[in-house]
Amino acid sequence: MEAMELNSNVIDTPPRDAASLVMIRDGAQGLEVLLMRRHTDSSVLGGACVFPGGKLDAADSSAELLERLDRSPSELHARLGEPELSPAHAAALYVAAAREAFEEAGVLYQQVGNAEVATVDAAARASLSAGETFNALLARLGLTLDTDALVPWSRWITPRRPSVMNKRFDTRFFLAVAPADQIARHDNFETTETLWLTPRNALIEYKEGRIDLAPPQIMGLAHLSRFTTVAQARSDALTRKPPLVEPESFEEDGTRVLCYPGDERHSVRERALPTPTRLVWKDKRFEPPGGFEALFQE
């Protein structure tokens, strides 16, 4: 497959709000993470492997939909850790993450009454694809979204000079354990392949050119490679504030470099992630200056 091309345009438009779900499970080789291959015709990261996610829709903050959450907007606002947002806006980001996971992967984090449930109506996803709204679907099935399952993990804002696409997003990533009795499946519309891989194996697949990854996925997988179990990763997310990551780019010896908080060239001195603080564009791939093994070093 062709490697992702580098974008050198400067974009002046404000970033759009978005949400993404980093779904994990315990596998035979340790912690595994879900990656979905986006359709090659997609206007955003076409052909790349991503965590399920997408832009925030206006309907995600509707009063009717927010009433279908297991926690109040004020509780979710406090968990997200962004005081500048309204509670309704913060809660809508949880909705967007859950909705996108259902649309793209067919996994629905839900409750019936006060009981968490794993099964989902087999026709529900098809109904959503046919035009039924997410709110109408939840109301018809009498479901409540299980926001307790979604743990705020990180926040990434695309730089004005983005690396691989022509759009800017302010994306909140949520970590969530895959429901035991639901099976993630691509929809053959937005996504064309479903991959469960250990973080290390996913990065090896990227290194060897079998999959494409954008920088947030590269760094997210490097972060997850520090954990061997779902419990470890979830505990880490629950005990810290989601870091804000605003990559900054520059040219060095004719090579594009992306640096992250804590790097000597970044405007924020405090390190945000337990991963390398920069990536360089080399052989049509991003990698740390010290090579791919640096992604797995503390």
Rank of each mutant, 00 (worst) to 15 (best):
E293S: 15
L45V: 03
E2P: 14
P87K: 01
R200A: 11
P247T: 09
K282N: 13
E248A: 06
T158N: 08
N7F: 14
L21K: 02
N9S: 13
Q182D: 04
H266T: 13
R155H: 09
P242S: 08
R240F: 01
P15S: 15
E67G: 14
P261A: 07
P162V: 05
A90D: 03
T228R: 12
E270M: 11
V257W: 00
R226G: 10
K167G: 01
L21H: 01
A101D: 03
D212N: 14
Q182N: 05
G291T: 07
S127V: 00
E270S: 14
P152V: 05
T171M: 09
L273V: 02
Y260L: 15
R140I: 07
L273W: 05
A294I: 04
V280M: 13
D253Q: 07
S8F: 11
D57V: 01
E287I: 12
R37N: 02
A233L: 07
S86D: 11
R16P: 01
E2K: 11
E5K: 12
V33K: 00
L295V: 12
H39F: 10
L141P: 01
Q29D: 14
F169P: 02
Q110S: 11
V164K: 04
W196A: 05
E82F: 09
D70L: 11
A48P: 01
S61E: 15
V117F: 02
E248L: 06
H186A: 12
I204W: 10
S249Y: 00
L21W: 02
G290R: 13
P52K: 07
E190Y: 08
L85R: 10
G220R: 04
R38N: 14
A176F: 00
S72A: 13
G291L: 02
N114E: 15
P288L: 11
N188D: 15
V112T: 10
F292G: 10
M36V: 05
D181R: 15
D146Q: 09
L21N: 09
T198E: 08
S235F: 03
L93R: 15
E67I: 03
L93E: 03
H39K: 13
L6G: 06
D253Y: 03
P276D: 06
D148C: 08
E84M: 07
F250Y: 15
D60C: 04
T158A: 06
V177F: 00
F292I: 14
L273G: 01
N201Q: 14
G27E: 05
D12A: 12
P15T: 10
S20E: 08
R155Y: 02
W153N: 01
V117Y: 00
V280D: 05
